[in-house]
Design a protein around this nucleic acid. Structure first.
Lengths: 160, 160
DNA sequence: GGCCCGGTACTCGGATACTAAATGTCCGAGTGCGGAAGG
DNA sequence: CCTTCCGCACTCGGACATTTAGTATCCGAGTACCGGGCC
C-alpha cells in the first residue's frame, strides 16, 4: 500500500497557493520552491485542475490558482485527484471461485472480509474529508508564523 | 494507493484455517479452494509465517496452521505481514529543500501536512487493529452458517 | 516377527522471470505581451 | 504620437521513455512416510 508521491507535492502546493491569493503561479515556480522536477509537478497540478481544485491559465502570466475557497478543499479531494478514487483494498470476489458460490452474488457487498476492510477505509476517508486545506494553512499561520511570512515573501519576490 | 492483492487471499485463508483447527493445511489445498495460483499464495502464507501469524511444517502431512488463537490475530497484523508496515503516505520531507529550512529538523514530525495525513492513517490502522480474524469467523458463522459448514466439509473431504 | 534403514514423494522456502504501474521527460498547442510599422 | 498588427516567448497539456514495485513461476532444502532388508 503505497500512495502516489505526488500527493505530498500537491498538498504543499495547495497550501502555498493559499499564500498567493488571486494570482496565477506557474508550475515552474512552485517546483523551484521545493526543488522538485517541474515537468512532473506540472502533471500533478494538471490532475488537480482536471478535478476542479485548481484553475489553470495558459500563456505568459499564466499558471495555476485555487479554483475555490481553501475551506472547501478537503484533503480527500486532493488525494482522490492525484491517487484515484479506487479503494486500496480491492475485493476481487474470490468467493466466486469457491465451492458452493452464487454466480450472481455481489461479493463486494456480501463478503464479510470485504466489509471489514471497507469499514476501515471508510474511517480513513472520513478523517481525510474532515480536514481542509484551510485548516492546514491556519495551523501553519499559528504554529510557524515566520514560515508563512517567508513563503509569502519568496513568492512575492523573485529571489528567495 | 493500491494494496497488495495477497492481503485478500491471506485474510480468507486465515478464516478458512479457523475451520480446520489443529491440522496443517497445504498451500495447494488452500489455493484450490478459491482456484488461486498455488505458488503465489504459498508466498503470501510464508509472509504470514514469518510474521508469526501462521506456523509452517515441511514434508508430507505438512502445511500451515494458525500460530495463535484467532482472537489474537487482528486484520492489521495480516495487512502488515503482507503489505509491509510502511505508511501509505510517505513524507519525503520536501520542506528540507524549501527556503529557510532547518537542515536538522525532522519534518516527518513537524510538517503539518505530514501530521494531517498521519492522523488519518492512524484512524485507519486503529480500525483494522480493532477487528480480529475471530470476529470475521463469528460473523460468517452467524450470517452464513451453511457456508461455514460447506467449507468445513470441503476441507474434510478431498472433493468439493 | 519386530526393528532399522534407505528411498521416495511431498512440503515449504527462497531465488528467479515477467508484467503493470508509478515516476520522470519531452515536445506540441494555445495565449498574452512587446515592439515595429504605418497612419 | 497613437493605433494596429505581427512575431515571440512563455504557459499548460498530453504523449512518450524509464525505473520501480507488484505478480507469477520455478527449482532446491528439508522432512515424514513407506517399503525392503536385517537381526
Amino acid at each position: 500500500m503505497k500512495m502516489n508521491e505526488g500527493v505530498e507535492w500537491a498538498l504543499h502546493s495547495c497550501v502555498n497557493l493559499c499564500f498567493i491569493p488571486g494570482e496565477a503561479v506557474t508550475a515552474k515556480r512552485l517546483a523551484a520552491f521545493y526543488d522538485l522536477p517541474a515537468a512532473y509537478l506540472n502533471k500533478q497540478l494538471q490532475a488537480l485542475a482536471k478535478a476542479g481544485i485548481l484553475s489553470s491559465t495558459s500563456g505568459p502570466k499564466g499558471g495555476f490558482q485555487l479554483a475555490r475557497r481553501p475551506d472547501k478543499i478537503t484533503l480527500l479531494d486532493v488525494v482522490i485527484a492525484i491517487d484515484g478514487a479506487d479503494d486500496a483494498f480491492r475485493c476481487t470476489e474470490i468467493l466466486h471461485a469457491g465451492p458452493g458460490a452464487d454466480p450472481k452474488a455481489d461479493y463486494r457487498k456480501t463478503c464479510l472480509v470485504s466489509q471489514a476492510m471497507r469499514k476501515a477505509e471508510l474511517t480513513y476517508r472520513r478523517e481525510l474529508a474532515s480536514q481542509t486545506i484551510a485548516d492546514i494553512v491556519a495551523q501553519v499561520e499559528s504554529t510557524y508564523p515566520d514560515s508563512a511570512d517567508n513563503t509569502r515573501h519568496w513568492f512575492a519576490n523573485l529571489k528567495s
